Amino acid sequence: MAVSMIAAMAKNNVIGHRGKLPWHLPKDMAYFASMTKGHPVIMGRKTFESIGKKPLPQRTNIVITKRDVYAAPGCLVAHSLGEGLFYAQISPHAEEIFIIGGSVVYKEGLRYTERLYITEIDYECEGDAFFPDIDSSWWKEISRIEALPDEENMHRHAYVTYAKLTEKERSVLERAFHVVVEIMPKDSILDPEGAAIMKGLHTLGFTHVNRVRIGKRIQLEMRGTSSASIRKSVESMCQKLLANSIIEYYAIQVM
């Protein structure tokens, strides 16, 4: 059993807006059908409702919902992704299972997924549903087929396949990174320690000092496969622990 994801997304990772696709690409719809037909497909409730509350033909349709009671005629109803995957693996043609949306299911499903089939659309648009970032420290591109716009397909796009890196591949790519995080109080925040130091400097005769702000510098030694993935991890550290975003700003250097 292999778990795959299939999605179409704009340049800004948008996959939908108000329950609809913000583009018209019949080629991509045909590609989606050809890839998923005959296989189990797993989707969230909102995705199921966005396609008209009807099962996709010639596929085992599994709908995930947190609602205790939910009617989805012609579909199997699961109350978690794990339960949905269980139903999928005992369904016909379960050699490949497709997760088809939406945002929450994609995000949760990445850890189970071995392959991504992504239609990358050369277009930026407004949206309220997004595909997760494809982290190059976890995924490698293995194929790309470009498609030009025509009378029926408005946007240039590409059918891109990503495979999850093995542990061995990740270990080969990993290297050491030195990270420096500088954290300073925002300009609107009083800095009594800085004011005290400036007063002391003036007392010592350094009257040309006009302002002192006290911050902190944090150094991290990390291992990873790319500076982008390291930066993203440190951003999360800053937001969750290292800095107080209400009163401080921070700058990250990855070396």
Rank of each mutant, 00 (worst) to 15 (best):
L21N: 02
T225A: 14
E126N: 13
E124K: 10
A2C: 03
Y117F: 15
A195C: 06
M198Y: 06
P40L: 01
D122S: 08
T119H: 02
P132L: 03
S226M: 12
I247A: 01
V160F: 12
L148F: 11
G38T: 05
R156L: 11
E248H: 13
R175K: 15
W139Q: 09
A243H: 07
D187T: 14
A8G: 11
Q219T: 12
Q253E: 15
I97A: 06
Y112C: 00
H17Y: 13
E167P: 05
R156M: 08
W23R: 03
W23L: 02
M237D: 04
Y123Q: 09
V14G: 02
E152L: 09
E169I: 13
G19Q: 08
S143L: 10
Y31W: 13
A2E: 14
I230L: 03
L21V: 07
D128W: 11
H79N: 14
L110Q: 07
K232N: 14
S50A: 09
G109F: 11
M43N: 04
I252M: 10
G215C: 07
R18W: 06
M5L: 15
V105H: 09
A228W: 15
S4V: 00
S236G: 10
V181K: 01
L190G: 10
G101C: 12
I121K: 00
M255K: 15
L173R: 13
S229L: 01
N244H: 09
V3N: 12
N61T: 03
V180I: 12
K107D: 13
K37S: 01
V3D: 13
V160M: 06
P55E: 03
P57T: 04
N61W: 08
I62D: 09
R217W: 03
I97W: 04
Y87Q: 14
A196V: 10
T203C: 04
I64N: 08
A7N: 05
L85E: 04
F130Y: 15
L76T: 01
Q239I: 07
P73T: 00
G109P: 04
C75H: 04
G84L: 01
A195V: 13
I6P: 12
N12Q: 08
I183A: 02
P192Q: 03
H157Q: 01
K11F: 00
I99V: 15
Y249H: 14
K168P: 00
K164V: 11
Y106E: 07
A30L: 06
Y70Q: 07
I214W: 11
I214G: 10
L204Y: 15
I121R: 02
R144G: 01
E124W: 00
G109Y: 12
I252G: 10
E221M: 01
F206C: 05
T113K: 11
H17Q: 13
V179E: 01
D122I: 00
A33F: 08
K164D: 12
R111F: 06
E235H: 14
V179Q: 00
N12G: 03
K186L: 13
V254T: 09
E182M: 09
S227Y: 13
I197E: 06
E193A: 15
A78I: 05
S137F: 00
S50T: 08
V105D: 05
G52Q: 09
